[in-house]
Design a protein around this nucleic acid. Structure first.
Length: 473
RNA sequence: GGACAGAUGGCCGAGCGGUUUAAGGCACCGGUCUUGAAAACCGGCAAGGGAGGAAUCCCUUCGCGAGUUCAAAUCUCGCUCUGUCCGCCA
């Protein structure tokens, strides 16, 4: 949400921003509604004041007279209030002066690139082909189980996934972040507070006819953590990180460009959230970018950074960096991270303020990806070998018992043979009245096969039969 | 899921139709006193909106939403959440 006072002061500026974003919000209509709202608001306040005075004087006659008119105006005020709010909700944030002008992601400006794109003397495989060959990524069975847009990590794939998230979470903790595990269901108010409603309406999975939806990002659960609170200035900044699954509808997304698990309905994401003073948000925006780039560099994935243009920004964004990993099989850079300074846009909606010199101000929020599974599939494509193996980056090896490479192995660990005789004897050693002690027929069945080895099926059948027999009696 | 009880400012807690513009206490902030601190005393201390150059004035908010009334923290209904007991359960 933007500051309506600012809008009233600089309506032309907001109209210009809206057109740069490709937004269709009618700002002059909003200003008209606001003026009307203000007029009625003043009127209602005055009538309420009269009403309060009459009530104090116990003036029943006069009170009755005004009551009807007041309630009519109150209804009108409520209507205008809602209209005003709905319009105001659609107005996008201010834009940083250095945001490039453009209509779509094609107009984003590359500002940095790192790493050498791998040159293979073989045709590199797509991550899903590679994953299937190695038996570490199973899309087919997931589709059978949950539909298109889902996938299983299996064996070393599951380990690689955990390793990457553990590595990133540790890195962030070491840089001052507080780690969270958050709910993945959220009320509508939380989605509104973070700026996802009403804009991303069609992206959100609703749960039945309840008020709950699956989160599309832990930004929704982490920013809402401080909803309605006034934070003491000395506590800022707050650095939060969470690793959660994220759920997105992604209607009609399938294409060559989204092959494999590039765009899916559920994916894991490690998020960076920073709640800070307004004057510091530019700094923390870059801080998050540094974290992203350090992670990419340590993982050895070539990437580039683009400055997102006006048309690709989304309503809450003031300034946004996208980081795009190099995908050899796609032969393209593709978005893996986004890092936005949302200034006070979310804070106004979620009413997160801080107290400074006894005055309450809205905080600024930064929302940035730290890691998603897209990074892991970029890693798979970049680190594949001629044999179809995957080299594991040094930083992840310690989270995988030192494993250096993923090969098509059925089992990585041998089965253990244990002696469970102590565990088996526990029941025998306990002193209690069992069914067999109580029920003659059961004892009979079991005494018949005493000393004979029988298989589990026969054994279970016997138990069922004997219980049944007993119940019939 | 069922039964009962409850929800009041940063916290505790009184009020249960009209001098409550929410008592009192704690915490916090400022002051007096003190070498300094503590204690004591004095003062301040919620959020949001509107009008105004400002001082200031007005409105809203006692979990949330509706209703009754000239008047609601207080009465009625619905919802949410918390506690206790029961049921179910990783």
């Amino acid at each position: 949400m933007i500051d309506i006072k600012l809008l009233k002061e600089y309506p032309e500026m907001f109209c210009e921003y809206a057109s740069l974003r490709g937004s269709t919000v009618d700002i002059s209509h909003l200003l008209d509604v606001d003026a009307e709202w203000r007029k009625i608001n003043t009127l209602v306040d005055e009538q309420r004041s009269v009403m309060n005075t009459l009530a104090k004087q116990k003036n029943i006659e006069e009170g009755k007279k005004i009551k009807a008119e007041l309630s009519k105006n109150e209804n009108l005020l409520r209507e205008l209030e809602e209209k005003r709010k709905n319009l105001l909700d659609l107005v996008g944030n201010l834009l940083a002066p250095d945001v490039p002008i453009g209509e779509s992601d094609a107009d984003n400006i590359e500002i940095f690139s790192w790493g050498t794109k791998p040159s293979f003397d073989f045709q590199p495989l797509y991550h899903d082909e590679l994953g299937e060959k190695l038996g570490i990524l199973d899309v087919k069975r997931a589709t059978k189980m949950a539909g298109s847009g889902f996938y299983y990590w299996v064996g070393d794939g599951a380990r690689l996934q955990s390793a990457a998230f553990l590595y990133v979470e540790n890195l962030l903790i070491n840089r001052g972040f507080i780690p969270f595990r958050t709910p993945v269901l959220a009320k509508k108010i939380s989605l509104y507070a973070t700026g996802y409603l009403p804009f991303a309406q069609d992206e959100i999975y609703r749960v039945g006819d309840s008020d709950l939806s699956l989160i599309g990002t832990s930004e929704q659960s982490l920013v809402s953590y401080k909803m309605d609170e006034i934070i003491d200035e000395s506590e800022l900044p707050l650095l939060y990180t969470a690793c959660t699954p994220c759920f997105r509808y992604e209607a009609g997304a399938a294409s060559r460009q989204t092959k494999g698990i590039f765009r899916v309905h559920q994916f894991q994401k490690q998020e960076q959230i920073i709640i800070c003073r307004p004057e510091d948000s530019e700094y923390w925006n870059l801080f998050c970018q540094k974290n992203i780039e350090d992670i990419m560099q340590e993982l050895g994935i070539p990437y580039r950074v683009v400055l997102v243009c006006t048309g690709d920004m989304g309503a809450p964004g003031y300034k946004k960096f996208d980081t795009e990993a190099w995908f050899p099989a796609f032969n393209a850079y593709k978005e893996t991270h986004s890092n936005s300074n949302l200034t006070d846009y979310q804070a106004r909606r979620s009413k997160i303020r801080y107290k400074s010199n006894n005055k309450n101000n809205f905080v600024h929020t930064i929302s940035a990806t730290a890691l998603t599974e897209r990074v892991i599939i970029a890693l798979m494509e970049n680190n594949q070998t001629a044999e179809g193996f995957i080299k594991i980056p040094k930083v992840l090896q310690k989270y995988m018992d030192g494993q250096e490479e993923i090969r098509p192995q059925k089992k990585t660990h041998p089965m253990q043979k244990n002696d469970f005789s102590e565990m088996e004897s526990r029941i025998k050693k306990s002193n209690y009245t069992s069914i067999a002690d109580k029920c003659e027929s059961i004892r009979e069945y079991f005494s018949n096969c005493h000393g004979t080895k029988i298989d589990t099926y026969t054994w279970l059948t016997m138990i069922v039969r004997s219980i049944w027999h007993h119940l019939e009696k």
